[in-house]
Write a protein that binds this DNA or RNA. Structure first.
Lengths: 187, 187
DNA sequence: GTCTATACGTGGATAGAC
DNA sequence: GTCTATCCACGTATAGAC
């Protein structure tokens, strides 16, 4: 939609990056304008609700990516372990090997938790549920499956924060590597 | 220093809460003024460098609290397990049972990572080192001790993000409860 | 569908009276 | 040491030409 240069999806990619990097409060229309190559006024043409609408659109946009790379791999063919390994690779990819923040985390701690609490909660819950389902397939009791899936989410989110705080993606990489085993209770 | 009403330490307590809750970008002088009961101009009397200087002061302020509640308990008397349990209680206290954000996390994801990268890295590292030292006392090999201490930090940070995102402190509580055992490798 | 121009509030910051 | 008044840049948002 934005110019001939960028499709709406491409523009949302750029917008997403800005929100991920700067959080809701930190992101400005200037940044969003530069990132997309659209004037500020043009942004309002595509997103009449302004910054808030852009953020909502970004949640939907991200939702698709997460579905493809994180959730779908869990329900394909293969043993639970194989599916979890595909999943782990997808998680790594979604966060660019630990170089990119989590949009949800950025929103949680970077303003916008009030505006987007529902979207964040829904997204986190869907992810956790999908992981727990695979663990049940692997014979893990339901409560324990949910508990482990939540623990995995905790570790992924924490790894992203610590990787940023210590300026090294090593912590993220380590968590990703151990994800399938940890979920399967092999530690 | 601020009025007869608040000591400097009390004022910094309030200022700290604002930065923890809103991050650096999200915190405004208005909020800081209301939180302390000082006019905006008065804030500049105490912190001539403005918002940035306040944030630096908050790092120092928090450093003291962390030392008292998180680090010191690690080096007191008792078995490693007892010390880690005191430590875990201190961690819980510092984050108000999971109700309060981590200042460092808020800065990492809420703007200010550029301005305060060094302070954040130093603080995280000191915490990790102190925990690793106790594990070495418990007979854990140095590398493994550091690895576990880092993993614990990852879990604490992640638990705070997830607790906020899912609007429940349960995840934080669970991590705190399992902290000593996880560090001692009993899982 | 994009632009320039602009409005208006807020954010950070300062001057100077008290 | 605190206040009122004020400054200026930037933030979000809109009007209207092209």
């Amino acid at each position: 939609m934005p110019a001939q240069r960028l499709t709406r999806d491409q523009a949302l990619d750029r917008i997403t990056e800005v929100f991920r990097r700067w959080g809701y409060d930190g992101a400005t229309l200037r940044m969003l304008s530069e990132a997309t190559g659209l004037g500020r006024a043009s942004l309002y043409h595509h997103f009449p609700g302004g910054k808030e609408e852009m953020a909502h659109a970004v949640f939907a946009h991200i939702g698709g990516r997460v579905q493809r790379h994180v959730i779908d791999p869990l329900s394909g063919a293969g043993t639970p372990r194989e599916r979890l390994e595909r999943h782990a690779r997808g998680v790594s990819r979604v966060f660019d090997g630990g170089k990119s923040n989590c949009l949800w985390g950025a929103m949680v701690l970077g303003g916008g938790i009030e505006l987007f609490a529902d979207e964040i909660e829904t997204a986190l819950t869907a992810w956790i549920r999908a992981v727990a389902a695979v663990l049940r397939d692997a014979g893990v009791a339901p409560r324990e499956a949910t508990r482990r899936a939540e623990a995995a989410m905790v570790r992924v989110q924490g790894a992203l924060v610590v990787s940023r705080g210590l300026a090294s993606t090593a912590h993220f990489q380590r968590v990703i590597k151990g994800l399938p085993s940890a979920l399967l209770g092999e530690v």
